[in-house]
């Protein structure tokens, strides 16, 4: 069983929803990333989504675009991100790490070599925004043969037939994108999300995470009530962006405490 599956099983037994914060690796500076990851775990992260900086983040809103740009100023690419995961693993062997990014950095390495290197760094899952299941069969095989979970996005426009196609490729969990738009948009409709999540559950036993548009304790709590995992990205990155070297970790810790309390209060 992968770390992601183990984590979801344990949470389910405790009747809890997972809190998954997203940060972009290398933002605001590569020296902070591993410390930030440990801080996230200390303050309630059940798993971490680690963004791989990319020059052309087409599915991201301005907040995460800027995070990518800050990281790229320090030349943080996929190779550096894998090194950060390795360093994190020196002192944490339990928290699942899910890489989130775009296809081209993976294409540049090649599917097999990437899967080898991700395994060596002890990565648990990979979300590739612009790899729909029709285009990444070989990539998914390479990941799954190494017990790395390919995590796929489902969107409000994904029809039932495609949900079937996608859940058959996915493992670990599926990630429901709660709105039509880029990351960080602010028009989350909880009733609609609730209906879609219920419908997805009829088609798969995989845990269902929800993200895009969760920006405070209230939306985190409402989402936690209906999902198996709550993903908070742009709000996390905004807090990082607004911090300096001195208060970075404490600001992130405070936000995590608030979100964790909200998620735990939901059930």
């Amino acid at each position: 069983m992968s770390r992601i599956q183990t984590a979801f099983t344990a949470l389910k037994q405790q009747g809890k929803t997972a809190l998954i914060p997203y940060i972009t690796a290398g933002d605001p500076h590569p020296k902070h990333t591993v410390n930030l990851m440990h801080t996230l775990v200390k303050h309630g992260a059940d798993m971490i989504e680690l963004g791989v900086p990319f020059s052309d983040p087409m599915a991201d809103g301005p907040v995460i675009q800027r995070a990518s740009e800050r990281a790229l100023l320090h030349k943080v690419g996929l190779t550096a991100v894998l090194e950060m995961v390795k360093t994190f693993r020196e002192t944490n062997q339990t928290t699942p790490i899910i890489l989130m990014g775009y296809a081209n950095p993976i294409e540049a390495i090649g599917a097999t070599a990437f899967a080898d290197r991700a395994k060596a760094a002890d990565v648990d899952g990979v979300i590739t925004v612009d790899y729909p299941p029709e285009e990444c069969g070989e990539f998914v095989r390479q990941l799954r043969s190494r017990d790395i979970d390919p995590v796929f996005l489902l969107s409000p426009t994904t029809d039932q037939k495609r949900v079937d196609l996608i859940v058959n490729q996915a493992s670990g969990f599926v990630y429901y994108v709660s709105l039509k738009g880029v990351t960080g948009a602010a028009n989350l409709d909880i009733a609609e999300v609730s209906q879609r999540v219920a419908s997805i559950r009829k088609q798969t036993n995989l845990p269902v995470g929800v993200g895009f548009g969760i920006r405070d304790a209230a939306t985190a709590k409402a989402t936690a009530a209906i999902a198996d995992a709550v993903v908070v990205g742009s709000r996390m990155v905004q807090t990082i962006e607004a911090s300096n070297d001195d208060n970075l970790l404490s600001n992130v810790a405070a936000l995590m405490d608030e979100l964790k309390a909200a998620v735990d209060a939901a059930k």
Partner: peptide, 22 residues
């Protein structure tokens, strides 16, 4: 240039070793 993925298709792309577009 190496082959890569950008803007919805796979093609020859000007990029660095990390797959970022130059």
């Amino acid at each position: 240039s190496p082959v890569g993925v950008l803007h919805g298709n796979r093609t020859y792309l000007m990029q660095d070793a990390d797959g970022n577009i130059i």
